[in-house]
């Protein structure tokens, strides 16, 4: 049997990869995918907890997270398309009309 800690370490690793991806990649779409990676990291730990606690709440929350992530993807892509139409780029460093 795989111990809980292994899952948690995997979860934390995936989460951190997401964080670093978000902080370093310059393409908005890839940044957004990094956020999805973070969410999936959380999902792994939730499912693992759920299994080890013999409790369904964790998995239910995972379903909700996946659903919300889908909605989020739709909205995120819509925003990116609107931006791309005006700017013709998805490079995040081009977006600093506002600062200070």
């Amino acid at each position: 049997m795989v111990p809980l800690n292994w899952y948690l370490m995997l979860s934390a690793t995936v989460f951190m990869i997401g964080v670093f991806g978000f902080l370093t990649r310059k393409n908005i779409i890839i940044m957004f995918m990094s956020v999805e990676l973070m969410l999936n990291g959380v999902n792994i730990s939730l499912v693992a907890f759920s299994h080890y606690l013999q409790d369904l709440r964790g998995q239910i929350l995972v379903f909700f997270i996946i659903t919300v992530a889908a909605a989020e993807a739709a909205i995120g892509l819509a925003i990116i398309i609107a931006l791309f139409r005006n700017k013709s780029t998805a490079h995040v460093d081009e977006m600093n009309e506002m600062k200070g």
Binding site: I28, I79, N86, K87
Partner: peptide, 15 residues
């Protein structure tokens, strides 16, 4: 939608 500032605001807020 046509305003670049509004797009940018949404993008930053969203991400």
């Amino acid at each position: 939608r046509y305003d670049i500032k509004s797009n940018e605001a949404a993008m930053k807020y969203f991400l």
